[in-house]
Simulated assay, not measured.
Amino acid sequence: MKRIKQTVSALAVTACAIFTSLNTNAAGTQQGGPCVCPQVYAPVCTYDGKEFSNACIAECNGYTADEYESCGLII
């Protein structure tokens, strides 16, 4: 019985960690509270040299679509 409780507890902690990482991967806040952005790597670069992992995070940091573009691949 103790082993089952440990397994259930471990599963609950893992599920919580996954949910948290999927729903809080954003820096910055919007007027309504913290941003919720997907964990998608599609880097965008701003006119002032900052780079964000995706457009959602750039917008959460106050940039508009006119102020950033895809960083492109550097080979």
Rank of each mutant, 00 (worst) to 15 (best):
Y68C: 02
D48F: 01
Q39G: 09
N25S: 09
I57S: 10
P38Q: 07
A12I: 15
A27W: 09
A27E: 10
A17H: 04
Q39I: 11
I75M: 14
I18K: 00
V40D: 00
R3K: 11
A58G: 01
I74Y: 12
C35M: 02
C37D: 03
E51S: 11
N54M: 04
L11S: 06
L22H: 14
T64A: 05
I75K: 07
V44G: 05
G28S: 04
Q39R: 12
C60K: 01
T20K: 01
F52Q: 03
C37K: 01
C56Y: 07
G49K: 03
A42W: 05
C16D: 06
E67K: 15
A15Y: 03
K50I: 00
Q39V: 09
Y63L: 10
Y47G: 07
Q30F: 06
G32Q: 12
I57F: 02
Q31W: 05
A27N: 09
E59L: 11
A55F: 04
I75F: 11
T14W: 10
N23M: 07
I57D: 10
I57P: 03
C35Q: 10
E69V: 10
D48P: 03
N54D: 04
G62F: 00
A10E: 04
L73C: 11
C71S: 13
C35L: 14
C35G: 04
A17P: 00
I74L: 15
A27M: 07
C16R: 07
I57M: 11
A58D: 08
G72N: 06
E69M: 08
G72S: 13
S9W: 07
K5S: 12
S70V: 02
N61I: 04
V13N: 01
Q30C: 06
N23I: 02
Q31E: 14
V13K: 13
A58C: 00
T7R: 06
G32T: 06
E67Q: 15
A42M: 03
A12F: 14
E59F: 03
I57W: 01
Y41V: 12
C45R: 15
K5Y: 11
A17C: 14
S53N: 12
E51H: 02
G62T: 09
D66M: 03
G49M: 01
L73Q: 15
Y63G: 00
V36R: 05
K5W: 10
V13T: 06
N61D: 05
D48E: 03
P38A: 08
K50P: 02
S53A: 08
V36W: 05
A10M: 13
T64P: 03
A58S: 06
M1Y: 08
A65C: 10
A55N: 13
V36I: 06
G28W: 02
S70G: 14
S70K: 04
L73F: 11
Q30S: 13
F52M: 04
A10L: 08
K50A: 08
A58T: 04
D48R: 00
A10D: 04
A26S: 15
C60P: 09
A15T: 06
M1I: 12
F52S: 08
A42P: 01
D48V: 10
Y63Q: 04
E67V: 12
V8I: 13
C35D: 05
